[in-house]
Simulated assay, not measured.
Amino acid sequence: MKKRLAIALMIGAGLLIKAQVGINMSAPQAILHVDGQKNTAPAVPASYYDDVVVTSLGNMGVGTKSPKTRLDMRSDDRQNAIGIGGTAQTASAAKAGALRYNSGTQDLSYSNGTVWTALAHKAPNDFVDAENPSKQSFTSGTQTIVTNWTKKTDVNGSFNAATGIFVASKTGVYIVSFTFSLASGTIANDSRYETLIQTNSASSATNKVFKCVGSYPGTNGLSNRVAGNCSGIFNLTQGDNITVNLNQALGTSKTLDADATLTSLSIFGL
Rank of each mutant, 00 (worst) to 15 (best):
V209M: 09
L9D: 12
C212G: 12
A258F: 00
K254A: 09
V226G: 11
Q89W: 06
Y193K: 10
G22W: 13
K135G: 02
K95N: 03
T255Q: 12
K135Y: 00
G113R: 08
T252G: 07
A30I: 12
A168K: 14
N125A: 15
L71M: 07
S223Y: 12
D126E: 08
A88V: 01
Q198A: 11
I17L: 15
V146T: 11
F234M: 15
T142E: 15
K211I: 10
T142I: 14
V53S: 12
A120V: 03
G113L: 07
G251L: 06
C230F: 11
V244P: 05
V244Q: 06
A13M: 14
L9W: 12
D240S: 01
T195N: 10
C212Y: 10
S204Y: 01
E131P: 01
S253L: 06
Q79G: 09
S177L: 08
A205I: 01
G221E: 10
D72E: 07
P133Y: 02
P67V: 02
A6I: 15
D51L: 02
D154A: 09
K2F: 09
S201C: 04
N245L: 04
N59C: 09
T117D: 00
F210T: 14
G61W: 04
T263N: 03
G218W: 03
T55C: 11
R225W: 00
N220C: 06
T87M: 03
Q238T: 02
N220K: 07
K18F: 13
G14K: 11
N160R: 00
A205R: 09
S92D: 13
S181Y: 01
A43G: 10
L99S: 08
I145W: 02
N160I: 00
G214A: 11
P124M: 07
L262D: 11
Y193S: 12
F159K: 01
H33F: 15
V52Q: 08
Q106N: 13
T263E: 04
S109Y: 00
G104P: 00
A162Y: 00
L15V: 13
N112L: 02
M60H: 09
A30F: 09
A96L: 01
S177Y: 12
A130L: 04
A13N: 11
G221V: 07
Y193E: 08
D35G: 03
S47R: 13
